[in-house]
Design a protein around this nucleic acid. Structure first.
Lengths: 164, 164
DNA sequence: ATGTATGCAAACAATTTGCACGACC
DNA sequence: GGTCGTGCAAATTGTTTGCATACAT
């Protein structure tokens, strides 16, 4: 839920190796501008505000580069498309995505907390895992209780509640 | 959550509501014949042994029906396609999929074990989750240690280890 | 220079769907 | 007989890729 976005370093490459191009900088800035989760389309749409000429292929390639350099992380999916979030935290953890407003929050890895034994029965050795959590942020769950419109201020693209 | 599926009752519909047709019975039997995880293609290929004329659309529609009736469960993915497994257990749990041979094993839900608090920080209410575990079964991890070929006997379609 | 990034458009692949026909109850 | 399931083939859709050009280093 917290935000550690250092905008202001958009003069150089905002993430990892690779060349610093106007498009890449624009995409990185757009990614950082989301308070929560965003899809490739959300990102593309937002980048168009900066660079209307940017191509979808470039957005996808930038997402791949940002994911590889851990500038962003895939946190779930919505309607068949992947959701990402800007995350500057190091260490193994996961994210909860608010299905109401797209806000995200960190969570410790439940598998680490539960212990390997629980996850690896019968001699299985767990080598990798994926944990995706969906829910409602404090603001959206208040709203849900009040049966009113969502009023939280996250500017991420809203998610279809049906997905939950 | 409960199940009303009687295995061994392949004369009628092997799962849920809907009509009992030869194709549906063949698909259900094929699904049950896998020792571990299988993809839609794996299933289609195996069903062809019984009914070479079955269409891919029917396989997908049967998968949807079997998933809805909890006769099978989606347990992960491999190379972009979903993996399912036959599962007769009731109660909330997850599966580990062996990336070597496709074998599966049950595991308690790590999120339940870890406790809601860990998964739901900052006032978030977690409403749904997805947990996918990949690893190596006892046989495959032995093999990995011996740097030899996989000798486990699960007849599920092997999974690309790179996916892990 | 030289190699990487971009754009465009075509390619891809898993899954879904419209439609007409045949099977189940 | 009416409804649901099936087959075929075409459509969908998120994402990837080939290729020629433009740009960063």
């Amino acid at each position: 839920m917290e935000r550690h976005v250092d905008i202001g370093d958009m003069t150089g490459a905002a993430y990892g190796p690779g060349r610093s191009t106007a498009q890449r900088r624009a995409v990185a800035a757009a990614a950082a501008s989301f308070a929560g989760a965003f899809s490739a389309d959300d990102l593309a749409e937002r980048v168009r505000g900066t660079d209307p000429e940017i191509s979808r292929a470039t957005v996808y390639r930038s997402i791949a580069a940002m994911t590889a350099s851990r500038y962003i992380t895939e946190v779930g999916e919505r309607e068949g498309s992947a959701l990402y979030t800007r995350c500057a935290e190091s260490g193994h953890h996961h994210h909860v995505v608010c299905t109401g407003c797209g806000a995200t929050a960190h969570t410790p890895c439940p598998i680490d907390v539960a212990g390997a034994a629980a996850a690896a029965p019968d001699g299985f050795v767990v080598t990798s895992h994926e944990v995706r959590l969906y829910g409602l942020c404090a603001a959206c769950s208040d709203v849900a209780r009040d049966a009113d419109g969502c009023s939280c201020d996250a500017d991420a693209a809203p998610t279809d509640p049906a997905t939950a």
